[in-house]
Write a protein that binds this DNA or RNA. Sequence first.
DNA 1: AAACATCACGAAAACGTTTTCGTGTTAATA
DNA 2: TATTAACACGAAAACGTTTTCGTGATGTTT
Lengths: 348, 348
Amino acid sequence: MKRKITLKHIARELEVSISTVSKALKNSAEISDDTKQKVQAFAKLYNYRPNNLAISLKSRRTNNIGVIIPDIVHYFFTTVFRGIEQYSKKHGYNVIACVSDESLEKEIVNMEMLANGSVDGFIMALSAETQKTKDFDHLRQIKDLEIPLVLFDRITDEVECDKVLINDKEAAFTAVRKFIDNGRKRIALITTEDYFSVSQGREAGYRQAHESCGLAIDEDLILRLSFRDLDEGDINAFFDARDVDAVLCVNEIFAAHSMNLVQQKGVKVPEEMEFIGFTDGILSKYAKPGLTSMAQHGFKMGEIAAKMLIDRVESNLGEEEEPYRTEIIKSTLVERGSTLNTIPAKLV
Amino acid sequence: MKRKITLKHIARELEVSISTVSKALKNSAEISDDTKQKVQAFAKLYNYRPNNLAISLKSRRTNNIGVIIPDIVHYFFTTVFRGIEQYSKKHGYNVIACVSDESLEKEIVNMEMLANGSVDGFIMALSAETQKTKDFDHLRQIKDLEIPLVLFDRITDEVECDKVLINDKEAAFTAVRKFIDNGRKRIALITTEDYFSVSQGREAGYRQAHESCGLAIDEDLILRLSFRDLDEGDINAFFDARDVDAVLCVNEIFAAHSMNLVQQKGVKVPEEMEFIGFTDGILSKYAKPGLTSMAQHGFKMGEIAAKMLIDRVESNLGEEEEPYRTEIIKSTLVERGSTLNTIPAKLV
DNA sequence: AAACATCACGAAAACGTTTTCGTGTTAATA
DNA sequence: TATTAACACGAAAACGTTTTCGTGATGTTT
C-alpha cells in the first residue's frame, strides 16, 4: 500500500506547522483566510483525506458497529442486518459483520476480536449454543467494559441491556386463533429444541390460544426438530402417525418443507391442512401455495436496534445513564394461499 | 466507555518502563524471566488486551477487509459473504460489510469511507448502476492508492485486478443443451437488462448452445425483466403469447416465480415445460417441483476471493508485484423435479 | 509613548503501541 | 586490575491526528 498524504506532508510543503494545517482544514477562526485558502487548495489538489485510525485513536471512537449473528444465510437475519447497515451508514457508522455459526465459542472469539478498540458497540442475536448453555460471561465482560450492547430476537433475561424483539407469544396466539376460527381442531406445532427464546415464546402463545378456546392440547402434536439438519423422515413419520388439520411452524423453512412433504402425499393445502409460518421471507412468497406467515419485520428491527445502539454510544459521552429499554415490534399476519378464508380474489 | 488498561498503566504500577512491559508481554529475550513473570501475571490479572487501533496505526495494517455487495438479501451474495467471512476470520481478518443497494453513488461513498485506513483491501461485486454507466473511476482511485481489490461475479474488463467468477457461458450452454437433449425446441430465456456481465455471459451460452445444434434462435423467446420489480403481468403476457417448452432463467427468483405462474395456468412442470434456474439456493430447493439449477458455489467463491485478497495484502509487503489472476469456478448442474429424465427414483 | 487586545501561528502533549538504540551493571576474560 | 561481553532495561521516535496553551507581531486605545 502506498503511503497516503498526511498533514505532515502538507505542512512541510507549505512551510507551516502541522497544527496550522489541521486548523486550516477545519476552517478554524484562528487561521487567516490567506493561509486557509492555500492549505485547502493544496489538500484538495492532492486529495488529502484524514486517516481514520489516527482520529479514532485520538477520539476513542471508531464509528464502527459490531454485529454478531448466528447465521447470515437465513432471510430473517439478513433483513435485520440490512436494517442495521442502512441506519448505521446514514449516521456515519460502518458495520463489522461476524457470524457465530450458532457456536458459543465463535461468538466469544468474535466479541474479543472486536472489543479492543475496533468497535463502539455490539448488536447481536445469541447463538443456539449460547442459549442452550446459558453461558453469558462474554456479554457481562462487555458490560463491565461499558461497551454498549443491543440484543435482538434471540435474547436472554439474564443480561441487562437494550433489546429488540417481536411479540412472539401474541403472534403465535394470533396464528393459532386463526386456525381455530377456521374450524381447525388438530393443530400441530413444528418448533425447534426448546432452549430458543423465540420458540419458547411462540410455544407459549400456541398453548394460550388453545386454552383461551377451551381446546385441549395434545402434546403429541408438538414436533421438535433440530435446527441444523431437518430430517425428512422425522417429518413424514410425524404426519403419517397423526391426524392433523393445521400446522404452525416457528420458521419458514420448517413450513415450506413440511408443506411440500404433505402435499407430496396428496394432502390438499389449504383445504385439508392449513399452514402458517414465521418470517415472511422469500420462501413464503414463492412457496406453492403461498405461505401465510407472521411477518417479523426484520428491516425495522434492524433499524431500531441500530438506533438504540447509536443513541447509547453517543449519549455515553453525556449525562447520566439512561435506563435500558426493550422495544417490541408487532408481528403482522400476511395471508396467502396456505390458509383458508383469506384473500378472496386470487390466491397468490 | 470505560478506559481500558494500557501498557502505561502496567508500567507505572510495576515501576518499569513502557518498553519493558511491551517486550515482556511478547516474551522478548531482552527481558529477565523475573520481570516477564511479574508483567505477565499483572497483565493477566487485569485482563490486558492491546488496543487494535494503536497497533494498526503503527503497523499500517488494519486486518479488516471491506466487502461491498449490491444486495445482501439474495441467497447468492449471502453465501459468498459467508465464504469471505469464514476464510477471513480464520486468517485473523474482520469483515466490514457494505451494501451498495445497486447504486453507484453508495458504492463510491462506501469505498471512500473505508479507503482511509479502515481496511486493507476490498472485495466487491459491482452494482447494477455501475455496470450500466460503466463508471469505474472509484475503482481506479483505489488502484492508485495501491489498495488491493478483488472483484467477484459482477465484474468488468475495464479494470485490472484479481477476479473470481463462474463460467457463465458454459453453464448456460450446459443447461440449454440439456433441454435440447430432452427434445425441447422452443426454449425461452428469462434474463435481466443486458448490462449485467453475468447475464451477458449466460445469454451468450444460450445462443451458442442453439447454434451448436443448428437450432435457430427466436429473439422473441428472450424476456428481459427489470431486476428491481418483476411484474407478474409481463411474465404472464410473455407466456400467453408464445409457444414455449423450456425456460432458462438467470436467477432463481425469476425461475421460481415464472414456474409458479405457468403452473397456475395449468401448465404441467416438467412434462409440458421444463425449468432451469441459476443459483442453487433455498428457493430452488423448496420450490414445487424442486428447481433444477446451475449451482454457483457462492461459498467457495467467497473463500477464494478472500484468499486472493489476503494473499495480495500480505505479499504486498514483500517482493515485486505478482500478475493479476482470474479464477473461474465451475458451475454444476443440480437436477430436481423441474426437468425430465433426471433423478429416477423420487422427484424431490 | 505606554498599555493592552487582537491576530496568526507554532510547540508540544496526548491517544497506545512497537522498535531501535543507548547505557549502566554485572560477570567473564586476559 | 583493566578490558570486554552479556545482560536487563529505559529513552525516545514513530504512526497521524486533535487540541491546549504560549508567544511574537501587529493594531488600538489612553
